[in-house]
Design a protein around this nucleic acid. Structure first.
Lengths: 371, 371
DNA sequence: TTGTATGCGTTATCAT
DNA sequence: ATGATAACGCATACAA
């Protein structure tokens, strides 16, 4: 069967418009519009089919720009991400994208490239395109950007970083649960001297929560001989980092081995570089569990144990929260905290001959075989 | 100085419109529009300032949706990417994004999530939002998507994958140059038994070009004792991969050592997994150089030698090509082939005591110190 | 149930 | 140089 060349639209423009369809079907523009929007009610069957065939014949599809202008809504969701180079952000983005698509929304992405000053600009740009709502995977400090969104009167959902002054839905990893998961795992493996390495905490909520939970854990298990410190790792301060690792290692003994916990994959990368600088191996000189489970985690040394985040669920959850609001859901801001997942690899293996403790792992934990 | 609450716009909507500005300045809408678009010419100084202050007072900024509807152009550039999970694609995206932004364009991203069947859908969706042109970082086979773009009559530029039936600008890595770079480096290091591992070549132009160039290199240097084969590595055929590595290793001798070359980071990941499965180490049992230089390349074994792609330049180049077309540039399709960059690490180190050959490296090559 | 007329915010073609 | 006014493509209040 050959390809049918559709009858050329009558309008001057390249694409068929609602007017063309109306003329072809011998009805008014309003009728066509009704067919498009209020199909079920308000339509006589005979004329409906006439419109339907006309639409098919002309290959008509409505112009979303015109729809947006007319409706004031766009079925676009604005997604602002701090740094699209970060695989974690991308994974969340994908989840959100899928959920939006399922609900008939398209996401318009704005990448900040880590220039937090562009937050307002991003919000305004997206708002000017009439996005119906925002998903914010970033938020510098200060309320600057906050009221930028609320000012536009559009709903927003925060991902990963909460912000005090803002009454918005919030979804993220259950940080304290995840920290407990990691620390408990290390403790059970005989690791007692703990060092939590974070990017500069500042007032980034995620980092605050994680370091806080770490402090809690250490305090709670002090009687058990657990010791812990936090190290804030600056981008280029490699010497300071190396010193911190050396100090940690110096405290390590056969019965109280020392281990690292990193706050995200960026830090993990720095730590891994430091370890090769020092000529040390994960799981031998120092134990290790890191937040985020990048694809390369199994390849470094004996494999890096990790806390995998439910990125897809976080993205979907955020999108769904927002979509519910767009559908008119009222009520106070909600919180969605999703559990992390511990992936055990060689870097946190218990001492070869020790560890008579639990061979069964908690239910939230699943271990993957080494490759 | 306190915050001035701007005089509320007179329109029903939340934002000030051109009509509000006109009224506030005591002029007509047309005049305001002229001020916005044809500032230099056609304007009396006194009335210009009146408009200007009115705009400032109301905090007016034009509504791009309305502009798009009226002009038929949107100052949006549609970027379709095969898989946003792929760091290479993201890096290119970032380059393109920057160039677009510099030229006053916003990019609208569509991620295929590797579902190539959605190509047409993506193109149509973007086109319906009146994007002014396309950057295509993907193109399944078949001309399906090709005429989808040309049909919309909008200019497009292809990145990374060319497509025969399509008269469009094309920008990518200089694949044959890059292959020569990698192979020459290995040859000089005493690696003679070469295996090029690629994803299934099918008719993806990049893969065809690289494997082709590899074949050329081997043929050219056969007299020098160089031998080479190509292995197409399926997603889940780990056994076949392991066998291929074993076979390669079996052919390795002290004077004719065996090395791998991978076609991209995805394959590199599979290879690295295979190496740990086999208990082998890069640079010892097998030499290695891979296309793409992921952030974790320095961390695997002795460090993975890599061909770094000029992703930023590729992205910028693509965007600039397109923008030139949007500005009216005519003429035949152009090609932009950017050189790769060899990063030497431990995985391709010459045999400890051998290799009296060139200590100086070609100019296109730069080596980075091991961490 | 269907058609007419108007508005969404801008640009552009006329006059003046 | 400036002001009415008609598009742009669609949605909708109002009439019929």
């Amino acid at each position: 069967m050959g390809v049918r060349i559709p009858r050329p639209p009558l309008s001057s423009s390249g694409r068929a418009t609602i007017a063309d369809v109306a003329q072809a079907a011998g009805v008014s523009k309003a009728t066509v519009s009704r067919f498009l929007n209020h199909r079920e009610r308000l339509l006589s069957p005979d004329i409906a089919t006439r419109v339907e065939t006309a639409i098919a014949a002309l290959g008509f599809s409505p112009n979303p720009v015109a729809q947006t202008l007319s409706r004031g809504r766009s079925r676009l969701i604005g997604l602002i991400v701090a740094d699209i180079t970060n695989p974690y952000s991308v994974a969340v983005l994908r989840g959100a994208e899928k959920a939006c698509q399922d609900a008939g929304y398209l996401v318009m992405l704005f990448n900040l490239g880590n220039e937090y000053g562009r937050e307002r600009e991003a919000i305004n740009a997206l708002a000017s395109y009439q996005v119906d709502g925002f998903i914010l995977n970033t938020l510098g400090r200060g309320a600057g950007a906050v009221d930028a969104v609320t000012m536009h009167g559009k709903p927003a959902v925060l991902v990963d970083r909460r912000h005090d002054g803002m009454e918005a839905d919030f979804v993220s990893l259950d940080n304290v649960g995840a920290v407990d998961l990691a620390c408990s795992h290390l403790r059970e493996g005989g690791w007692r001297e703990l060092l939590y390495v974070s990017e500069p905490v500042k007032d980034v909520s995620t980092r605050r929560e994680r370091t806080g939970a770490f402090g809690e854990f250490v305090a709670t298990h002090a009687a058990d001989g657990v010791t812990g410190e936090v190290f804030e790792c600056e981008e280029s301060a490699t010497d300071a980092l190396d010193d911190a690792l050396r100090a940690l290692h110096a405290r390590s003994t056969k019965t109280r081995r020392a281990a690292l916990i990193t706050g995200n994959a960026v830090v993990t990368l720095r730590i891994a570089a430091a370890m090769t600088r020092l000529g040390w191996q994960f799981g031998r000189e120092l134990g290790f569990v890191g937040f985020d489970d990048p694809e390369w985690a199994p390849l470094v040394g004996p494999g890096l144990s990790a806390i995998e985040q439910p990125t897809d669920a976080i993205g979907r959850g955020a999108a769904n929260c927002l979509i519910e609001r767009l559908r008119g859901l009222e009520g106070p801001a909600r919180q969605l905290m999703l559990p992390g997942h511990l992936v055990v690899r060689g870097s946190s293996a218990p001492a070869a001959l020790a560890a008579p403790t639990a061979s069964a792992t908690p239910s939230a934990v699943s271990s993957t075989a080494l490759p």
